[in-house]
């Protein structure tokens, strides 16, 4: 809760508690939306359920549009937001591994914790796998460190990289989202229904 603790409205000891409450709320919403079902999640890849795609893409563009307008109205200083550095090589490799894990295991890390919380055995197994993976990654880190740090680009924004304005980038992404929602809906209509 950056601003509240920084300006002294809240003691920083509250941060963990607030994180817990937000985490519980997030988990609750994920579960209520059916995101604790691995069949629903992988529907994305098999073409019979694109809810995950729609939900996360809508969330992303809504947040983007909100941040842009907040910045325009001077309600937020975007330069104060921490942006992770980009290491393009490891980002691509990580994306591929994450995607494969998602298709094979049926969860992404967040939803697996959510599903494990309601006692789904596949999610618990998935979580165990996640931690084994983390452990192996830690052990083998010296071997892959050079690759891990390859392709450093600093804190780069896509729109700066492409040389277009931030507003234009958001607009293009919104268009892409709407078009993709339309076509995924068509794919979903044609797909063989799956019961879950």
């Amino acid at each position: 809760m950056g601003p509240l603790t920084d300006i002294g409205v809240l003691n920083s000891n509250w941060e963990l508690l607030i994180a817990l409450v937000i985490g519980l709320a997030f988990g609750y919403v994920l579960e209520s939306a059916g995101f604790s079902s691995s069949r629903k999640l992988v529907g994305n890849f098999y073409g019979y359920d694109f809810v995950v795609w729609r939900v996360f893409f809508t969330a992303a563009i809504t947040a983007m549009i909100g941040l842009m307008y907040f910045s325009y109205l001077d309600w937020i200083d975007l330069s104060l937001i921490y942006v992770n550095q980009t290491f393009i090589g490891s980002a691509i490799a990580g994306g591929v591994i994450m995607g494969l894990g998602f298709i094979i295991g049926g969860f992404c890390p967040g939803t697996s914790a959510c599903a494990a919380a309601i006692g789904k055995i596949d999610a618990i197994v998935f979580l165990v796998g996640v931690f084994i993976g983390i452990f192996l990654f830690g052990l083998s880190f010296p071997l892959i460190e050079d690759f891990f740090k390859s392709g450093a680009m600093g804190s780069v924004f896509v729109y700066d990289f492409l040389g277009i304005s931030a507003g234009m980038f958001v607009f293009i992404l919104v268009l892409f989202a709407i078009v993709s929602f339309y076509f995924t809906a068509r794919i979903q209509r044609k797909a063989k229904p799956v019961r879950y």
Partner: peptide
């Protein structure tokens, strides 16, 4: 599992997002 391709609320949301996006380009 077979949503109708075009529902009214989807159209409404798409229009809102699109207008917000156009706004960002034109301000």
């Amino acid at each position: 599992n077979k949503p109708r391709i075009i529902k009214k609320r989807y159209i409404f949301m798409s229009v809102v997002l699109l207008l917000a996006g156009i706004g960002l380009v034109t301000i």
